[in-house]
């Protein structure tokens, strides 16, 4: 199996499972592939063999089969192949499939796992960590504890999106006006790709979510760091003061940065510098990336909802980018 599995890797591969739900499905797939592969080969072989027979006319020299005999033969084909074969196959399939499906469900009872709320927007992800001590909000970057189940409560803000981390388990639609729930678990710490799986408009292709599983203690630290982060302030008088002014003047009506603005149209930027990507996976986060995004985002991700910034001075954008990259708790 190993050489086959070598071609199965990839950040989004269903066949390289990293959690119990995805593992069940991967096994289901291999089982079905083998079983149905045999059925397929058998049917096609029977078909082709029927034509071959003609080349060997001595196979059955006198074709004087009586009508009754023929009826019996035909019935045997139909009962065996048409009723028994599919009947048994689907019974077996359901016997495996229904319990596997049930394990994926957030059943009531038992310990209630942590909840992470994810909202799909055109074309980015809002991620919220509800907590009595204060909610943490981030975007396009999801951190979850490894080794324990997590309940995701998902919804859509505008159109229907779908939440899907292929290596952890199945997908669930994010529908405006409803909250859907799915339970996923990562076996061990790691980084997993995720992408919107329901067509949601022109930039559906650029709606990636960076999912990172970390040990539970690290997760708590990660949350605490964001909860307790010092908010930004326009009173601060350092080299970034002009950038903050640019932000309040031009960005704050849509974006939030704790302490500076409370816009909720676009992603919350309070910990932007700590995220792995920009523009929901369009650009990798590295030095200067934010400034590049700010000047070229309509070329990199055409049609995205942020207006272009051609009216702004390039230097101001560069300063804005440099400051935004410092936003990490």
């Amino acid at each position: 199996m190993l050489p086959v599995l070598a071609g199965c890797g990839g950040s989004h591969s269903i066949l390289d499972p990293a959690g119990p739900a995805a593992r069940d499905v991967a096994w289901l797939w291999w089982g079905m592939l083998i079983g149905f592969g045999l059925v397929f080969v058998a049917v096609v072989a029977l078909w082709l063999a029927a034509f071959r027979r003609r080349d060997a006319p001595d196979h059955r020299p006198d074709r004087s089969v009586s009508p009754d005999e023929e009826r019996r033969l035909g019935l045997r084909w139909i009962l065996g192949g048409g009723i028994l074969l599919p009947g048994v196959s689907i019974l077996v399939l359901l016997a495996f499939g229904v319990p596997a499906g049930q394990r994926l469900l957030p059943l009531p009872g038992g310990e209630t796992p942590r909840v992470i709320e994810v909202t799909g927007h055109q074309w980015w992800w809002e991620v919220r960590y509800p907590d009595d001590r204060g909610e943490v909000v981030t975007a396009n970057h999801l951190v979850m504890p490894a080794g324990e189940p997590v309940d995701f409560h998902v919804t859509g803000a505008d159109v229907i999106h779908a939440f899907w981390v292929p290596r952890l388990g199945g997908k669930i639609d994010m529908i405006p006006g409803r909250i859907n729930r799915i339970r996923l678990q990562a076996d061990s710490p790691g980084v997993f790709g995720a992408q919107c799986a329901e067509y949601c408009g022109v930039q559906h292709a650029h709606m990636h979510l960076h999912v990172e599983a970390v040990p539970p203690e690290a997760f708590d630290d990660w949350l605490a760091a964001r909860r307790d982060a010092e908010p930004e302030s326009s009173d601060l008088d350092d080299e970034h003061a002009p950038a903050r002014d640019t932000f309040t003047a031009h960005c704050a009506s849509c974006h939030r940065v704790a302490g500076l603005g409370e816009g909720d149209v676009g992603p919350d930027l309070s910990d932007l510098g700590a995220r792995a990507t920009l523009g929901a996976g369009t650009l990798a986060m590295e030095e200067g990336a934010v400034a590049q995004w700010l000047t070229e985002h309509q070329r990199l991700k055409p049609g995205n909802r942020m207006p272009d910034h051609d009216h702004l001075d390039p230097q101001a954008l560069e300063a804005l980018g440099a400051w935004l990259e410092t936003l990490r708790p």
Binding site: I90, L94, V98, P99, Q102, L105, L107
Partner: peptide, 14 residues
Amino acid sequence: AFVAWPLVALPPCL
């Protein structure tokens, strides 16, 4: 019979 079969195993309303 076949479609009703899963109800033996499943709690409703989930």
